[in-house]
Design a protein around this nucleic acid. Structure first.
Lengths: 147, 147
DNA sequence: CTAACTGCAAAGTGTTTGCACTCTT
DNA sequence: AAGAGTGCAAACACTTTGCAGTTAG
């Protein structure tokens, strides 16, 4: 069962697991709690370090397994669909991306297809902006046909 | 020497290499040519397959080495700054990202800090859009101080 | 001629998997 | 009890590196 991908608090994990048909193990609970506490888009290894302080016997594989489970059930998201393999950009024109989250295909969308991106607030001072990149995420035609 | 990151045509590679202080080898030329011909945000392995048809003795390591060189000199770009390691998203609120391309740090920017993203053209039919994600790319305060 | 580049194999990362054991339900 | 989850080690996929031989400038 797939929950809506909105993100959840650790307090609700019992209920979330029930809905998703997942067992609520101690490890799973602590992994989720720590994950939710970490501000900075953590990598699996960093989650592992945190959780190990509470459950020293925990295995890194369990962290990976649980992260995968969480993502599959929509409890958390990955920042980028394209970790795992380097993908190269050879389109010299300013453009954005149409990304299928299922097959990972990336199509270019010309920058001129968009109204200019405007911010209401200013960027944190000291950060020098090079460019804006918009990703339009969803499921492509081909993939939605496939079931 | 660092060229502007605008993308270049294969025809100019001789000049680009000269400016960057790079040797223009046959392998390098063919890798660049093929790369520029490939439409679909290729992975290194795919570039390798293409180039091998023209230079069967080519090694995959050479493809990787050259891609790295091209990226470092701004001749091509990587699609995502965060290939290499999974990064997790635990912020349940709709938001965008401020990404430092040097240290790879990701900060959240609330969706409400932006004017709504609007498109002039419509998305290719059949693609069902789930969400828009904006990445504001640049160099953070800390990194710009560091040299 | 010299510095840069290539090919190969070996070493490194980050991630997944098979299996026996344990825990949740 | 039965099925799901854990820990471990081994396997994998992707990428980098060291080194000897080759090539560009």
């Amino acid at each position: 069962m797939k929950a809506a991908s909105q993100g959840y608090s650790a307090a609700n994990l019992r209920e979330l697991c029930r809905l998703a048909g997942l067992s609520l193990t101690h490890q799973r609970l602590v992994i989720f709690e720590e994950l939710m506490k970490m501000g900075d888009h953590p990598a699996p290894e960093e989650v592992y370090e945190k959780v190990r302080k509470k459950i020293p016997s925990l295995s890194l594989a369990t962290v990976y397994n649980n992260i995968k489970t969480f993502v599959e059930h929509g409890l958390i998201r990955e920042v980028s669909v394209h970790h795992g393999s380097l993908r190269l950009e050879n389109n010299p024109h300013p453009h954005h991306h149409l990304v299928c989250t299922r097959c990972k295909r990336i199509e270019d969308l010309d920058e001129s297809d968009f109204e200019p991106i405007r911010m209401k607030k200013s960027i944190p001072s000291g950060f020098s902006v090079h460019r804006f990149s918009v990703e339009v995420l969803g499921i492509c035609k081909r993939c939605s046909k496939q079931n």
